[in-house]
Amino acid sequence: MKAFGRLYLCLLIFFLYLPIGVMIAMGFNASPYYQLPFEFSTRWWNELWQNQDLLEAGRNSVIVAVIVTLIATPIGTAGAVALHRREFPGRNFLRVMLLPPIAIPWLITGTAMLVMFYWSGVGRGFHAMLIGHVALAIPYVVLVVSTGLQTIRQDLEEAAMSLGSTPVHAFFRVTLPLLTPSIIGAALFAFAVSLDQFVISYFLATPGYTTLPVKIYSAIRKGFTPDINIISTVLLLASMALVLVYAVFSKFGAGNVRR
Rank of each mutant, 00 (worst) to 15 (best):
L12R: 00
L12F: 04
F14H: 06
F15K: 06
F15A: 14
F15W: 11
Y17D: 02
Y17C: 02
L18V: 13
P19D: 01
G21S: 04
V22L: 15
A25H: 00
M26E: 09
M26C: 05
M26I: 12
M26G: 02
F28L: 13
F28V: 08
N29W: 03
P32C: 11
P32E: 05
Q35M: 12
L36A: 12
F38T: 01
E39P: 00
E39R: 08
F40N: 01
S41K: 00
S41W: 08
T42H: 04
W44F: 14
W44V: 15
N46M: 09
E47K: 13
E47A: 14
W49K: 08
W49R: 08
W49P: 04
Q50G: 13
Q50C: 08
N51H: 14
Q52E: 12
D53E: 15
L54P: 11
L55W: 01
L55I: 02
A57L: 02
G58I: 07
N60S: 11
N60D: 13
N60I: 08
V62E: 07
V62Y: 13
I63Y: 15
I63N: 13
V64L: 15
V64H: 01
A65P: 01
A65R: 04
A65C: 06
A65S: 14
V68L: 10
T69P: 06
T69A: 14
I71P: 09
A72P: 02
A72L: 03
P74E: 06
T77P: 03
G79Q: 10
G79H: 03
A80I: 07
A80R: 05
A80E: 07
A80N: 09
V81M: 14
L83M: 08
H84D: 15
H84R: 05
R85H: 11
R86W: 08
R86T: 13
